[in-house]
Design a protein around this nucleic acid. Structure first.
Lengths: 288, 288
DNA sequence: ATCAAAATGGAATTTATATTCCAAATGCGG
DNA sequence: CCGCATTTGGAATATAAATTCCATTTTGAT
């Protein structure tokens, strides 16, 4: 197929040659496994079946653990790996490990690429943002805890007034929330921070606050959220990691880890989360 | 679990005791991380942020790899693990590995699973927006003409001052543009429309305008763009279809067709286009 | 039934990795 | 500015894992 050697077996001793290039992807690996599994001796086939059934274990287990799971000897595992074209178990495991994080495209490589082509065409940059945005969206489904999301919706639907706090990078998110709430007739206030309004007097105990901030966290957002908390309002935090300063406020945390391109991010995931939150709140309010 | 010591801390000197039971779940781990991250010294906090942002790497990396990723010493990683209550890295990694297999089901499976729970739940709605966002992004690369994009960048890079116009649904886009331009020291004005400022006096012939509007087109955006055009400024339009009212102004058109969920759209594509545009302009200005 | 070839199990060895230790650097209160 | 406690970087060590080797067993052909 891809074997381009001109005379595959001119040399009579080559008949038993098992020198193959190692599979370059998980798919290639399983393709090869499927086509050679029958020819394997008993124990090796036994192990092949095991990892066909438990492919996720390979990346995070040791030879000994896999051997025990498949009920074979560690040396059988080694022979299997070599039979499949790898130099050993470590090389095979590396493939399985890289495939996992492949979903989260190699950040360092990307950054370097951007710097290289820093002066490249706008379309290339757009393509970059599109791809990063897609990856961020995919990831969003795993970082947002459905239970926390439901709680956030409950809290916001119960609130008398919803206050939105978020500046700079987060401002597009809060301003879109404001638009959505307005359109659904949900009482909501966008704190644009223009006049340094005193939060303590504006926010009532029965209100709720949506605070949005990403590293490096905007001081004012933290301050305002802290004061809001002190006046008894519930806080829903849209932020990036659990170590965010908003964590201290016993806020309901909705986590979005957005990839950057250079110093900027596309905000796709944050916006999607925000709009889903807003629409859910609007729907739930109508039901009450 | 297997730690059955009867009196963990009979010693009264508990004040300095940092002997905590290791977290039993990923959630518990991140909860503890969130509550103690502030107290940690510099390097440890640095590492804490790294794994908060890259939790998926822990299961499949060595101490050395993580250390390099976070730009700290391997010994700092060890200290961090112990600070969090683990005996060492291996114990912590074991926790992450046990959680790992659950993440394997791919994107499509997750999406399907979320949908099953009916359109009622917020998570299902989120899944909806995520998928629509992905589709819109994909589409974006075909609807945006690379030549028009390059022209837009040229025009904006030449402009003395860049004016951004866009309200309601388009406001997140313009406000993000404003943030990006500010960060790159590009002279730009966000016309928030608060005080009905008279555009003719503000916009000079050597300026350029980015006008953003989608159907149903906001009157004020069209008006302002028209007046700006009259004073001789170039117009870059981010809009949805060629028949948009902005077409009449001989604007450079960048088309985004965003899909909606119900009455709302996620804005992913528009934001991505905007940020790519802004970064390109910033880069090109630096070259001049 | 007998031999040769292939496969297997388990121990020995090598290599990689986690962990500990300590000297140097840093930050902090007096 | 000085001394003390804390933190840090990097090398040294201990531990665990991968890999190889070889004696033993199994398989299959004659």
């Amino acid at each position: 197929m891809n074997d381009a050697s001109p005379d595959p077996d001119k040399d009579p001793n080559l008949a038993s040659a098992e020198i193959l290039a190692p599979p370059q992807s998980i798919d290639a690996f399983f393709a090869r496994l499927g086509s050679t599994a029958d020819r394997l001796p008993k124990r090796l086939k036994q192990f092949a079946n095991y990892i066909a059934a438990n492919p996720d274990k390979v990346a995070v287990s040791t030879v000994a653990e896999l051997a025990e799971g498949a009920d074979v000897q560690p040396s059988a595992v080694m022979r299997f790996c070599q039979e499949m074209g790898f130099s050993g178990f470590s090389q095979m495991q590396k493939l399985f490990r890289s495939d996992y994080s492949q979903k989260w495209p190699d950040y360092a490589t990307r950054l370097a690429k951007l710097r290289e082509h820093g002066t490249e065409s706008p379309s290339a940059l757009l393509a970059e943002f599109v791809e990063v945005g897609r990856a961020s969206l995919e990831n969003l489904l795993t970082t947002v805890d459905p239970i926390a999301l439901q709680q956030a919706v409950d809290v916001l639907a119960r609130a008398e007034t919803i206050h939105m706090i978020g500046f700079r990078r987060a401002f597009p998110v809060t301003s879109y929330l404001a638009y959505a709430f307005e359109k659904m007739d949900v009482p909501a206030v966008l704190h644009s921070g223009i006049a340094n309004i005193n939060m303590e007097h504006l926010i009532r105990p029965n209100d709720a606050v949506i605070a949005v901030t990403f590293a490096p966290y905007t001081e004012m957002t933290i301050d305002m959220a802290t004061k809001a908390r002190a006046s008894g309002a519930d806080i829903v935090a849209i932020t990036d990691v659990v170590t965010s300063p908003l964590a201290r406020l016993k806020a309901i945390q909705l986590l979005v880890s957005e990839l950057d391109v250079g110093a900027f991010r596309a905000l796709s995931a944050s916006l999607s989360l925000a709009i889903a939150l807003a629409v859910s709140v609007g729907a739930q309010r109508n039901r009450m």
